[in-house]
Nucleic acid binder design. Structure first.
Lengths: 202, 202
DNA sequence: GCAAAAGTGTTGTGTCTACACCCATGT
DNA sequence: ACATGGGTGTAGACACAACACTTTTGC
């Protein structure tokens, strides 16, 4: 009986900072760890990245890598201030990755972009409290296109995703009205936009 | 060096028939096949179920089974008339499955339900051509709640998911107006409902 | 006072729901 | 004629985009 294929877990860890989406790389590649016999996938992931520094994680997909090992990839999201082993690179300006790593990175970004529209997943990229302008920067970085602060606020407040929090942020040197502070109402993933079509009858 | 964990591929194959959602079981469990060394996941899936009989398939998730093997599960969708090895069981009235199989089955159903709302996946459950009433039965079976034929038609035609096709279906013994025939415009998965919120500016 | 930044008011458009009503057939 | 199932018309409720306008600050 031949050995079965070896199995690894890969983490695609993203954060939004400096108005850009960044990926965590360790030694010029996505962090990974082999799957030990009888260990869970989460345990293997924990060996690759510090799970405590991730505000959210979810499984992405399992693929056969170029070198013949099977890899289960996870999407991890980190807040701008968390620290993880490795370095952060802007997703639009990465060092050369292997084709399979590139594919996983793109899958992670696509998943994040989709979920920003119909879940509260923004909570995992934003700091604890923030102004709407700051949140807008996070969304712009992650989505890669412009977002109106006005409409972002209205959509998220209407859905109950954002909550006002006491206090205001003082304006900078150039003046301007002090900004209200908000936080995400939930700190775990929730679907906030039940699909409009084909809803169950009332 | 210890052997790595053995890996299998599991198929959760669903179809809509007799106004119910049904699952394919082989020997009272979900069809599966071991992953041979250096074989692709799709090749292993092909050993478990006949891929030609599936109108659509996609990867679901990878989990650690109760017996310690790693399993990558696929969602497969079959048309009502396709034949596959094994037996069909109504999803709401199944023989006892192992807990991990139960979990995969529920994940498959949840995935299907979500995608029915924002993609054209219905194509993989419906016959080649159909009346709106017949399509409504498919949606009711898959979603588990009532669906209005009126609105189903309008939503899917507006989105360009359905196309009229020549001819009409003759009424049954009890009379009634002959029904128009439709087909799905695309026979592969397409996202049809770009998320309303947070769309890029024009 | 003026520039800058934040936030609100308002209008228009598109999409989905609900329900009334009309159409075409069998008996 | 009338029951049955198929299909259309239409009005209401929302949600989102766009943009004008007001508020609050620094200088």
């Amino acid at each position: 009986v031949p050995d079965s294929t070896s199995h690894a877990v890969v983490g695609v860890v993203l954060r939004a900072r400096d108005a850009r989406l960044q990926v965590l790389l360790v030694d010029d590649s996505l962090p990974f760890a082999p799957l030990a016999r009888d260990a869970s996938l989460e345990q293997a992931l924990a060996a690759a990245v510090d799970l405590n520094a991730l505000a959210h994680r979810e499984q992405l997909e399992t693929i056969l890598l170029d070198d013949g090992t099977i890899a289960t990839a996870y999407l991890g999201l980190a807040r701008p201030d968390g620290h993880l082993r490795g370095g952060w690179f802007p997703i639009r300006h990465l060092p050369q990755l292997r084709p399979d790593e590139e594919q996983l990175m793109l899958a992670a970004r696509a998943r994040l972009r989709a979920k920003l529209s119909y879940t509260n997943v923004g909570f995992a990229l934003a700091p604890e409290t923030f102004t709407i302008s700051e949140l807008r920067e996070v969304y712009v970085a992650a989505l890669g296109h412009d977002v109106s602060a006005t409409n972002l606020q209205r959509v998220l407040v209407r859905r109950g995703v954002l909550e006002r929090v006491d206090g205001r942020r003082a304006p900078g040197r150039t003046g301007g009205r002090p900004a209200a502070l908000f936080r995400f109402a939930m700190q775990c993933l929730e679907v906030t936009d039940e699909f409009a079509a084909l809803r169950p009858p009332r």
